[in-house]
């Protein structure tokens, strides 16, 4: 891990979009992302990663990354009652999809903490997004063998 972490353009643009807003508006932007989370393609309805269910306090997000010929794809599903989780998943869907596996692995682990949401969302909740990113990177690494 001597390579410096580089934020791909897609994620950098999202980050910029948050940081140029005031705190209240950042929440609104996160809500917009939540509304944009695409439905899971039907062919993934039985994907094994979907079985990694998260119980109790954490909202039941199910997310996974696939390395495909045209780059990485990130898929996620979370219930409408969990808009913050949907927002995080949507940011990663838009920010990771289409990147090369190497680019995904180079995304800084603390990306979630750099969106200016620490006060209005809280670091504890943002750790859920960090978890999703960590998981995506692990899955990409596994698929590269």
């Amino acid at each position: 891990m001597t390579e410096p972490a580089v934020l791909p353009d897609s994620l950098a643009e999202i980050q910029e979009g948050f940081l140029e807003l005031g705190e209240r508006d950042r929440l609104q932007l996160l809500l917009e992302f939540a509304g944009e989370l695409p439905a899971l393609p039907p062919r993934y309805a039985d994907h094994p990663s979907l079985l990694e269910k998260v119980e109790e306090c954490q909202s039941p997000v199910r997310a996974f990354a696939e390395v495909e010929p045209d780059g990485v794809h990130f898929y996620a599903t979370a219930p409408a009652e969990a808009p913050t989780t949907r927002g995080f998943a949507s940011i990663l869907t838009q920010g990771l999809t289409g990147l090369t596996p190497e680019q995904v692995l180079a995304v800084p682990d603390d990306f979630a903490m750099t969106l200016g949401l620490n006060r209005s969302v809280s670091p504890l909740r943002l750790s859920g997004m960090t978890g999703m990113l960590t998981r995506a990177k692990r899955q990409v690494r596994e698929q590269l063998g």
Partner: peptide
């Protein structure tokens, strides 16, 4: 729990 649920 969800900080955005009220807004929806």
């Amino acid at each position: 729990e969800d900080v955005l649920l009220y807004e929806t």
